[in-house]
Design a protein around this nucleic acid. Structure first.
Lengths: 243, 243
DNA sequence: TTTTGTAATATTGTCGACAATTAACAGGCC
DNA sequence: GGCCTGTTAATTGTCGACAATATTACAAAA
């Protein structure tokens, strides 16, 4: 990535970095493979790559004007985050999940977001509480006026915030990874205003539980939140026969 | 890994592969980087590498008689599993955790093993039930006659079995990864016969819950199992001032 | 003795080339 | 016509060399 311009094959719009990312401690200088992984990863979770699409090393290398070495490592990083699958001697492709797998992914996410909520409710870090309140405000606002994309985005970020608030680095990384992998499908589950209103109420409940110093209630609220999301997403996938 | 001999720097004993491994579906042909990662990973979780020890690419390359390319990828794989940490331009080192991080790791493990137990209890796959019974038998036997190492090993494998029994691929991989990362410390928590007896009783309880078709009870039993393990391990670490 | 600056060394990062493997395709055979 | 098989093209896998960077050793000064 010698020149910051790059972007030739990928869609022209360079609105990368919309999404937070990776186990990166914060804003430190990322290595070349990490930068590449970040760009491609963002493209994937934003849906600019189709599920199942092959990613060829040389293509990416040309695109970023580097050799295949760093690209190879970038693909390994993306594999770690579940965004691509690498088959030996067959290259990498954007992860493609069937309904059952999406369900499984959400199942784990439900459990871990519950844990994160409980831990966050136990810690009650002032800074976190403030961000949480602001986030729920934003979510409510968008639920009334915004569109599905904006809402999904806001909820996504609130999930990351909650994971941060747990104060558990490992949990944080796992929730981040799961959020990335399921973003595509969460979006599907928030496409109707009705669902967004329901989701918004859940977030308010969760916030109340955290503020009310009720870790157990917070856990349950967070679990319900994701469970509702899953139920809708899976139902829609089944109807669409996206098996 | 042209020659199966290798092993020069690493301790002579080549009792690798004692531990199950990786998201590998089963016994399929592993790629070269995967093979290397597996060998080094086994060495790490068996404690043949000290925490914090640096792993130099050229050393490993010489050891396996390959170039640094595959080694680099192997290290990325190990990073994914949390066994090594890679710092840009500073190379890889065996992950070293302080007490707080060990606690955090177990916290997540408690939650996920609980989920695995619940799912396994809901599925009740006949083959899984049989293996589970056999495993608990084995554990009981070793609790009476065996030593700490044998017991730790048996319990470790039972954890993997439980993860498999959940039928959830993503959960399985996460539990595997967590089991690898915490094996070192679990061993610490099972060093007294008293603790092993307690652990054994927990496993019996879990088995009973699964057989008794009580998912909720299974979840709680599994959580208690790992929680007890964590409590002892963390307590011992604190005493040792391994901060 | 401790600290600090500089040089030497060791190690990681990246590259381009070649080897090995897989996938695509054309031609022959049943 | 469909299926097998050998050839060709495309793609991944591995390697050794060089560049960039970090670590260490050492010496000089405080």
């Amino acid at each position: 990535m010698k020149a910051a311009k790059a972007a030739s094959t990928a869609p022209a719009t360079d609105f990368d970095m919309v999404y937070a990312w990776s186990p990166s401690p914060s804003a430190q200088t990322l290595s070349l493979p990490e930068q590449i992984a970040e760009r491609i990863g963002n493209a994937i979770i934003q849906g600019r790559y189709e599920p199942g699409a092959r990613i060829q090393e040389q293509d990416v290398a040309d695109q970023f004007q580097v050799s295949r070495g760093p690209v190879r490592e970038a693909l390994r990083i993306l594999e770690r985050d579940g965004l691509v699958q690498i088959h030996a001697r067959r290259g990498a492709q954007v992860t493609q999940l069937n309904v059952g797998e999406v369900n499984d992914l959400f199942e784990v996410r439900i459990s871990l977001i519950g844990l994160a909520a409980r831990l966050a409710a136990e810690r009650r870090d002032p800074e976190f509480l403030a961000k949480m309140r602001a986030g729920v405000e934003r979510i409510s606002e968008i639920a009334k006026n915004g569109d599905a994309d904006a809402y999904t985005n806001a909820v996504y970020r609130q999930n990351l915030l909650l994971a941060e608030g747990s104060g558990n680095r490992f949990l944080r990384n796992m929730v981040f990874s799961l959020a990335h992998q399921t973003l595509r499908y969460s979006r599907l589950g928030l496409s109707t205003p009705k669902r967004r209103a329901q989701s918004m109420r859940n977030w308010r409940l969760l916030l109340a539980a955290i503020q009310g110093n009720a870790p157990k209630a917070a856990q349950e609220a967070a679990e319900k939140l994701v469970r509702d999301s899953r139920d809708t997403a899976v139902k829609m996938l089944r109807q669409e026969k996206v098996e």
